[in-house]
Computed example of a mutant assay.
Amino acid sequence: MSSRNRKVVPEAREALDRFKYEVANEIGVPLKQGYNGDLTSYQNGSVGGYMVKKMIESAERNLMNQ
């Protein structure tokens, strides 16, 4: 089965990884490099959800500044 989670801009992978760890740190999720199977679905979902929230806020600020 192929993954549907393809990056639109593959060059952004490193920046998205940094952003993920930054967000996890902000919300207190002990995300680490490598295996994170000890984290709950709630913790992982919180990181993803907060990433989306911050990206939307950034896009809204950019639209307001145009």
Results as ranks from 00 to 15, higher is better:
1 M>Q: 09
2 S>V: 12
3 S>C: 02
3 S>F: 06
4 R>F: 08
4 R>M: 10
4 R>W: 11
4 R>I: 05
4 R>G: 07
4 R>P: 00
5 N>M: 09
5 N>R: 14
6 R>M: 06
6 R>L: 12
6 R>D: 11
6 R>T: 10
6 R>C: 07
6 R>Y: 06
7 K>E: 13
7 K>L: 15
8 V>F: 12
9 V>I: 15
10 P>D: 10
10 P>V: 10
10 P>E: 10
12 A>L: 13
12 A>D: 14
12 A>P: 04
12 A>V: 08
13 R>N: 10
14 E>N: 07
15 A>N: 05
15 A>Q: 13
15 A>F: 04
16 L>F: 13
16 L>G: 06
16 L>I: 11
17 D>K: 12
17 D>V: 10
17 D>P: 00
18 R>M: 14
18 R>P: 07
18 R>C: 13
19 F>K: 09
19 F>W: 13
19 F>M: 06
19 F>I: 03
20 K>R: 14
21 Y>N: 10
21 Y>E: 09
21 Y>K: 10
22 E>T: 15
22 E>I: 04
23 V>S: 11
23 V>M: 14
23 V>W: 03
24 A>L: 11
24 A>Q: 13
24 A>T: 10
25 N>L: 11
25 N>A: 15
26 E>S: 12
26 E>D: 15
27 I>H: 09
27 I>F: 07
28 G>E: 04
28 G>I: 06
29 V>R: 07
29 V>S: 09
29 V>Y: 05
29 V>T: 07
30 P>H: 05
30 P>V: 04
30 P>R: 08
31 L>H: 00
31 L>E: 00
31 L>R: 03
32 K>M: 02
32 K>G: 04
32 K>Y: 01
33 Q>N: 12
33 Q>Y: 01
33 Q>A: 12
34 G>D: 01
34 G>P: 01
34 G>S: 02
34 G>C: 06
35 Y>V: 05
35 Y>W: 11
35 Y>K: 06
37 G>T: 06
38 D>Q: 09
38 D>T: 10
39 L>D: 00
39 L>G: 03
39 L>H: 02
39 L>I: 03
40 T>E: 05
40 T>M: 00
40 T>A: 01
40 T>C: 03
40 T>G: 04
41 S>P: 02
42 Y>H: 02
43 Q>G: 01
43 Q>Y: 08
43 Q>N: 03
44 N>Y: 00
44 N>L: 14
44 N>D: 02
45 G>T: 03
45 G>H: 05
47 V>E: 00
47 V>R: 00
48 G>P: 00
48 G>Q: 03
49 G>H: 08
49 G>S: 08
49 G>A: 07
49 G>L: 07
50 Y>E: 15
50 Y>N: 07
50 Y>T: 14
51 M>L: 04
52 V>T: 09
52 V>Y: 08
52 V>E: 11
53 K>A: 07
54 K>Y: 04
54 K>R: 15
55 M>P: 00
56 I>A: 03
56 I>Y: 08
57 E>L: 14
57 E>R: 03
58 S>V: 05
61 R>V: 06
61 R>Y: 12
63 L>M: 08
63 L>N: 09
64 M>Q: 15
65 N>P: 00
65 N>L: 13
65 N>S: 13
66 Q>K: 12
66 Q>I: 14
66 Q>G: 15
